[in-house]
Design a protein around this nucleic acid. Structure first.
Lengths: 236, 236
DNA sequence: GCAAAAGTGTTTCATGTACACCCATGT
DNA sequence: ACATGGGTGTACATGAAACACTTTTGC
């Protein structure tokens, strides 16, 4: 299937795609099913692909996300490569590789990326042959994923926590276009694993130059409606 | 030469090895010479290697450093992978690859590491067929290196600056076993591109738990001898 | 009128920054 | 005795953390 465009079946990219549902951090995983000796196996894996001819690594990661979500301009950042010979120690993973690439593959080095997307966008994740779903970051630690994808998610999470700490404007990649300060605060706290003080947070937030107040309020909430804000990229 | 042990001639590691000579940050580069159409070309490259069978990425990087310096337990940290199709756009690089690997190679993805070593150790860098030398980090920006190695060094430098900021105990990887506080300060300033205040620095330094004062003084200096300190890993 | 979250200031403490003089040693 | 870098303390500014009550709205 890939053979014409394929650069090298031993190098891939994988994307750890994070989203925020208002409460928890989520990761996007692809459902993988395969029948092996007439038994149907179901598990999950990170979105990924081998690298095509004439494609840079970043381009390959962008392509994976675009094919999956239809979106462009997603925040993407390479964070680590994984190349242990043990990555393909699970026979089902090897079998799956051979079936999808139609090649004999002993070992794959993968370049891992983190991506941040707004979970609220109505994205069709269930196209053609792939279906993808959001999973709670903390819960998938207990689920056995394909290859070393548990490890990759763990490292990706550490990476993005660190990154969002250094570059707080990246938090807005995870929020809807219009959001309240308390949504921003929940996100901040989920990412940093803290319980920040309401007043101090508000103070810090409104003095970010790129946070701009709108003349609109939240709607449909059973209590006092909160003011909405948006993010101004130009001022970051 | 590699053919028996070789895992995949399309994946390599490269190491950006940093050292500190008391004044400047240095990078270790391999001298590469090659004759092409009866002309002798000389340039420099990062120490690196393709990955061997059954070798993890970190192991490959360790091996490269060990082969080059004879040292083990060098601080090493993977920081980025480079895989642009344009990496091998220079014909001399392609020629060099073919001669050293004895294979036809279109493109290589390389996993880059930074390493920190004590420049004072008397290391034999001029073994067999390779000779290596230290170059001033700022000056090699103006020298054309093999492949995209200029870029890799630049990114490696950014990475290590950031890293040494977060984990200041790593500074000691670059200093001799016994050092003065003003050596530590020079290093700190070179890394952070600052001119720190002597008194404030001293204050901050001596309250690091892992910095232990010795009962020894500097020797052979034409002025008041400074007190020596060492680094205690256990207390980091 | 009550439940539920929004919004808002002040005090305290820790940390960083600015700044200048005497000391020890080798020549 | 002089040149060279070593070693030291205090005052000020800035930023982080603790802490509680009133307001708005839907039901």
């Amino acid at each position: 299937m890939f053979s014409e465009n394929l650069y090298n079946p031993h190098i891939s990219v994988d994307c750890v795609v994070f989203g925020f549902d208002g409460e928890k951090l989520k990761v996007l995983l692809i459902e993988r099913s395969m029948n092996e000796q007439n038994e149907l196996y179901n598990d999950k894996k990170l979105p990924g692909s081998i690298i095509l001819n004439n494609e840079d690594l970043d381009d390959a990661a962008s392509r994976v996300l675009n094919e999956l979500t239809g979106l462009k301009n997603i925040y993407l950042s390479q964070f680590k490569s994984f190349g242990s010979p043990l990555r393909t120690s699970n026979p089902s993973d090897v079998l799956w590789l051979e079936r999808t690439t139609k090649m004999k593959i002993g070992r794959i080095v993968t370049v891992a990326y983190v991506a941040l997307i707004k979970i609220d966008r109505k994205i069709v994740f269930n196209a053609e042959d792939t279906s993808a779903n959001w999973y709670d970051v903390n819960e998938i630690a207990n689920v056995q994923l394909a290859f070393d994808h548990n490890r990759i998610i763990k490292d990706g999470l550490l990476h993005i926590r660190h990154r969002l700490d250094l570059e707080p404007h990246l938090l807005f990649e995870l929020l809807p276009n219009k959001f309240t300060i308390s949504q921003l605060r929940s996100l901040y706290d989920v990412v940093h694993q803290t319980r920040s003080d309401v007043r101090n947070f508000h103070k810090k937030a409104i003095q970010m130059p790129y946070l701009v107040m709108l003349d609109e309020l939240e709607e449909g909430v059973p209590h006092r409606a909160a003011r909405l804000y948006k993010f101004d990229k130009k001022k970051k």
